[in-house]
Write a protein that binds this DNA or RNA. Structure first.
Length: 481
RNA sequence: GGCGACGUAGCCAAGUGGUAAGGCAGGGGUCUGCAAAACCCCUAUGCCCCGGUUCGAAUCCGGGCGUCGCCUCCA
């Protein structure tokens, strides 16, 4: 049983998809008017884990995440940078998709764009007007909020208690301050499409109702987004969809917590955002990914560079084990009872991991189990059952990677990083020095390699050379080779 | 003013009634030519404060204090 926290009912509910074999997910995607920041990465990574876990649990998943490629912010931005709005959106979408791929986020099954769905949107708005749930005004079409007795349920807002005067109306044609735009007339120098209500563009919320219905049907299983979207975006989306179809659009509403810095929300206006590019310059992409998973998805994540560095150090331990066991075959036979504790743990690992994720996708607990597993594997490695420990470690890391995404993508299939002949010469030279007990020379060679960006470790199985500081470091040149 | 979340060791963080996971940092060991890595041991008699319920509470209830979010574009 998979339990998921539902914003509407304020509690965990069992996931019970209408089609028991298929989970249909809609997540509000980005408005591609600026470079992606860490706040865009969190939901992407979180829902990537949701998909992976549901898939592991045997469901088929259809995951839809939209791009809002036309709205006021894009219009404004395109003016500032003197760039065609379509081109602007395409560039930012391309950057976003490239960065998400680095983070190991699998692309959505469908990534619909607003500009490709004007027909659906116009039909949706027309339907709401026909049903007398929306009205045409001088400057567009508005949804009539007061006609929905359930309005405010999702966000816990009460229409009469919302701060008066905050929703500024600037001489528009709303009948009620809480009404929101379904269609906004646009001047001829701005992007627009013809409609029964004149040339204009969609309001902010209608796109998601139209596109989710188009691809997932009028009712689907999970709807996601950041908590800052609960009101007004999702409240309005829910109201529209219910008004149009007469049914609840999403069985469960999931919302990820926001990312803060020094406990304050990152936002454009405060200028305290951290771009994804800056993160990737500093840390290994998979360290960034798992850092975002180190906290349960609903909990606010207070970002700090120190925190990211600390986390990266922990991940290195996992990756080191992977490097050591990646080519290990599965154990052919396990020792018989009585089995030591570590061996039992290694065998129960995946079961425990999946159980942690069954509980509202608790990736923090899941990652703690991975660290436990690493320790158990190392412990077992030093026993007569070392081969079994290593084989189980390899299998377990692969299983954890399948649902969480924890291993460096480049390393997964490629062999060990091939060192060039010069490096090999140095290592062998040093081995000779050590054999001759010339410790001073041996240490000098090790220092030399260190300065070149490699760490040399003497292990029971021989010298091990690997690029150091794999997970982090801004400003350091890439190792030569 | 309304709605909501959070407050667990130096830092991050899991834990919704049964006697404090995990990571980083720190201390001490084992191993090593020395390191590194790895492993072992130690580091919260206590979970913001005060009451209450209970055999038993970080976990439930009441009251405080503090921080943050939403109510306006925002993942």
């Amino acid at each position: 049983m998979i339990a998921v926290y539902d914003t509407l009912t304020r509690g965990k509910r069992p996931l019970a998809p209408a089609d028991p074999t298929l989970v249909r997910i809609y997540v509000c995607g980005v408005t591609p008017y600026a470079e992606a920041h860490i706040g865009h990465a969190r939901p992407a990574v979180v829902w990537d884990v949701v998909r992976r876990h549901l898939t592991r649990r045997g469901y088929r998943v259809v995951y839809v995440q939209n791009y809002t490629d036309v709205d006021d912010k894009l219009v404004d931005r395109s003016r500032v940078v003197q760039c065609d709005i379509g081109e602007l959106a395409r560039q930012h979408i391309a950057d976003y998709e490239r960065e998400m791929a680095l983070l190991g986020v699998e692309p959505p099954d469908l990534a619909p764009r607003v500009t490709d769905h004007l027909t659906d949107i116009v039909r949706f708005v027309a339907g709401l007007v026909e049903r007398d749930r929306a009205y045409e005004a001088d400057d567009g079409v508005y949804f009539e909020v007061r006609r929905d007795p359930q309005y405010g349920q999702l966000s816990g807002q009460h229409l009469d208690e919302m701060r008066p005067g905050v929703r500024v109306q600037v001489a528009d044609g709303k009948r009620d301050p809480a009404d929101f735009a379904l269609w906004k007339r646009a001047p001829s120098d701005e992007p627009g499409w013809e409609s029964p209500w004149g040339r204009g563009r969609p309001g902010w919320h209608i796109e998601c109702s139209a596109m989710s219905a188009r691809y997932l049907g009028e009712a689907f299983d999970l709807h996601g987004g950041g908590v800052d979207l609960v009101f007004p975006h999702h409240e309005n989306e829910r109201a529209q969809s219910r008004a149009y179809f007469g049914v609840e659009p999403a069985a469960i509403w999931m919302h990820n917590g926001l990312i803060t810095q020094a406990a304050v929300k990152m936002s454009k206006s405060l200028g305290n955002g951290v771009s994804l590019q800056a993160l990737l310059d500093r840390a290994h992409p998979m360290a960034v990914r798992t850092y975002l998973l180190s906290v349960q998805y609903r909990t606010p994540l207070d970002f700090s560079w120190q925190g990211l560095d600390d986390w990266s150090r922990g991940m290195e331990r996992i990756w080191r084990l992977w490097e050591d066991v990646r080519n290990e075959p599965a154990p052919s036979a396990l020792p018989h009872a009585p089995q030591p504790q570590w061996l039992q743990s290694l065998q129960a690992f995946e079961e425990n991991l999946l159980a942690a994720l069954d509980d509202d996708f608790n990736s923090a607990r899941a990652l703690a189990l991975v660290f436990d597993m690493v320790r158990d594997a190392r412990r077992g490695e030093a026993t007569p059952y070392g081969r079994a420990a290593r084989g189980l470690a390899r299998a377990n890391l692969a299983k954890a990677d399948a649902v969480l995404g924890i291993l460096p993508i480049d390393d997964k299939t490629a062999g060990r990083p091939q060192s060039d002949s010069v490096l090999n010469e140095l290592v062998q030279w040093r081995q000779a020095a050590r054999a001759g007990r010339d410790w001073e020379l041996a240490d000098q060679i090790r220092d030399l390699l260190d300065r070149a960006g490699y760490r040399l470790e003497d292990t029971p199985r021989g010298a091990n050379l690997r690029p150091k500081e794999k997970s982090r470091r801004a400003g350091q040149p890439s190792p030569p080779v």
